[in-house]
Amino acid sequence: MAISSPSVFLLMVGGQIETGEFQEFDDIYCRYNFVYGQDWVITSGLEEGITQTARKSVDDRQKFVLNFPLDITFKSTNPYGWPQVVVHAYGHDVFGNDVVRGYGATHIPMVPGRHTRRIAMFVPESSSQFQKMTAWLMGRRPEFVDARVIAQGEGREVTRVRSQGFITLSFNIIMKDMKKLGYDVTPSDVANPTIPESSNAGTTSTPAQTPR
């Protein structure tokens, strides 16, 4: 009996939001959500979530250790609209209000295996000093109504922002049936091994052995 070829491929994402770096603050927590194209469907896992509140470590690193798990599986018919994860960090100001500490986004790695991403975070800025002072007094800092705009990019060129901190994420990526649908996800250093230069003239060089 002939075996039918697959019509979709699977992208399985595991990992965690590991640490945060915000030197000016003492406590943060993060929200996250995945943004993806119309041809993608979530088959299992959580599309969005919120971490616990973490305090800055007392050692020299001064990092916020979160270690919050990520677990989601997608299926799709084509790679257009490859998923991204959007992370937005929050904390408390001197008045006890929740204020945004940073926005950031990164694409899910497109190669199977373990990966680490260090995301540079940023916050929107007020358009004037008066608005900045008013926002500080009222406890309503500038923020995006929908954080998914970070991954879309439309209208971002007119947004005034300021860099503030980093978030580190780790990913464990598993893919299924991508090669059967004609997509090559082999890492470039494995698909095209380097050819060392020969020290003797006229000697034919052989490809370097691919590491296991």
Rank of each mutant, 00 (worst) to 15 (best):
N78W: 00
R160F: 13
Q52N: 09
A151P: 06
T134A: 14
S126R: 11
A105G: 06
N33G: 11
I42T: 13
G20T: 06
V123N: 01
V41I: 09
G96L: 07
M110G: 15
G96R: 06
D93Y: 03
D98P: 01
D26V: 15
E47G: 09
N67V: 02
W40A: 00
I28W: 04
Q52L: 09
F122W: 15
G96F: 08
P79Y: 10
A54H: 08
G104C: 06
F122S: 11
V145K: 07
Q131V: 04
G91Q: 04
Q84S: 13
D146G: 00
I42R: 12
S44Y: 06
K75R: 10
R55T: 12
E157L: 06
V35M: 09
E125F: 15
R160V: 06
V58Y: 10
Y36R: 10
D98I: 05
D93P: 04
F74S: 07
K63R: 14
T159Q: 14
Q38M: 05
W40R: 03
I50P: 00
G104L: 01
G113Y: 02
Y32L: 09
D93H: 05
E154P: 01
W40Q: 06
D93M: 06
R55S: 13
I108V: 15
H92W: 09
P69D: 08
E21I: 06
I72N: 08
I72K: 04
K56L: 15
M121D: 07
M121Q: 05
D146N: 03
S76P: 00
V65Q: 10
P79S: 14
V85Y: 04
G113D: 07
V99P: 01
K63W: 10
F34M: 04
V58W: 09
V65T: 06
E48M: 07
R148M: 13
V94I: 10
I50K: 08
Q152D: 05
V35Y: 04
A105P: 02
A54S: 15
P69Q: 11
A105S: 08
E157H: 02
D71W: 05
D59N: 11
F74I: 04
Y80G: 06
P109E: 12
I72P: 03
F130L: 11
K56F: 14
R140G: 03
S44L: 07
R140T: 14
V145P: 03
R101E: 03
I50C: 10
F74R: 05
G49E: 08
I150N: 01
Q129A: 15
I42P: 13
T51S: 10
I42H: 10
S76F: 00
G37I: 00
I42C: 13
G104N: 02
T106S: 12
F130T: 10
I28P: 02
N78S: 12
H107Y: 14
Q84C: 12
A89L: 00
F95Q: 11
V158G: 00
V100I: 14
F25K: 13
R101D: 01
G20E: 01
G139P: 00
R156V: 01
V123Q: 00
N78Y: 08
N67Y: 11
R160C: 04
Q23C: 14
I150Y: 02
D146T: 05
R114L: 07
V145F: 14
R140C: 09
S76H: 02
R55I: 11
K56Y: 14
Y32V: 04
N33V: 06
S76W: 01
F68Y: 10
Q52D: 09
A151L: 07
W136H: 11
P112I: 14
I119Y: 05
V111Q: 14
E154G: 02
L70R: 06
Q129V: 11
G102R: 03
P142R: 11
Y29H: 12
